[in-house]
Design a protein around this nucleic acid. Sequence first.
DNA 1: AAAACGGGGCA
DNA 2: TGCCCAGTTTT
Length: 302
Amino acid sequence: MPQTPTPTAVADAHTRIIGWFDAHARDLPWRRDECTPWGVMVSEFMLQQTPVARVLPVWTEWMRRWPTPADLAAEPSPEILRAWGRLGYPRRALRLHAAAQTIMDEHDGEVPNTAAELKALPGVGEYTSAAIACFAFDQPEVVVDTNIRRVHARAFSGRALPEKSLTRAEMSLATELMPADPEQACRWNAATMELGALVCTARSPQCRVCPVSASCAWLVAGSPEAHYQPKGQSWAGTDRQLRGAIMALLRSHDGGTALTAIRQRVEESLSPDDAQFDRCVSSLVADGLAERTGDELSLPRS
DNA sequence: AAAACGGGGCA
DNA sequence: TGCCCAGTTTT
């Protein structure tokens, strides 16, 4: 277990990383003062497992079309899934829609401002609840995402990568590292995340420009290799690939499409057997991502 | 604790 | 090709 860094070292890290953030933070629309809590919430849903660059245009379009929870909650058409486009994990769009409806039903149309209430919303877990509370409502919640975990692993624990899953020790460390001042705490969260996204990256960290390279435990230890081999997820031939291809087809049509036509179209690029095709159609319907009427499949109405 | 869940871009 | 990305939910 890593030792808790000394108070002096922690304060120095605060100064350096927040100072770096002041100079180098990206001007992202959901970080601007005029962005609403709803805008922050939409961004956090889209950013789950999806890089900033791909989220930007979709977020802008969503905020134009559905600027408040009420607007999204009242949207009955498949336009939600169509507007999600190719962001991936389209169940996030359904969960965001459901969350908007819960906000209407239980929170008077206002995004709740506590982590506990946020976490009760569909699609909002440990990270997202803390992030919205912190970034939209300036509450000093402990925010721990993949970027922050990696920065902590390197700068304070001397490891190339964080553990495979979030550990108690990581949460304790993140808690210890939080600045006492609430405003600084929120800035620290955003700054550490940004450092992980731009400098302390997974593949080729830019230690030459890192504000804490002088004290980085990993660098000081000689940049040791990761103690485990990351296990990537397969893609070619998987249900995920086929489900994605079917969803892309549904998004490109108004109304329904015959299952035989869908099968024919996906076979232009993929080679599913009958069992896989049926399984994927069924699971999409079960997930609420598609609707089956007779021999046709379509995007569902909400 | 582990698996399922998209998709694109870069080394 | 393999790996990674502001994770959550289900098993």
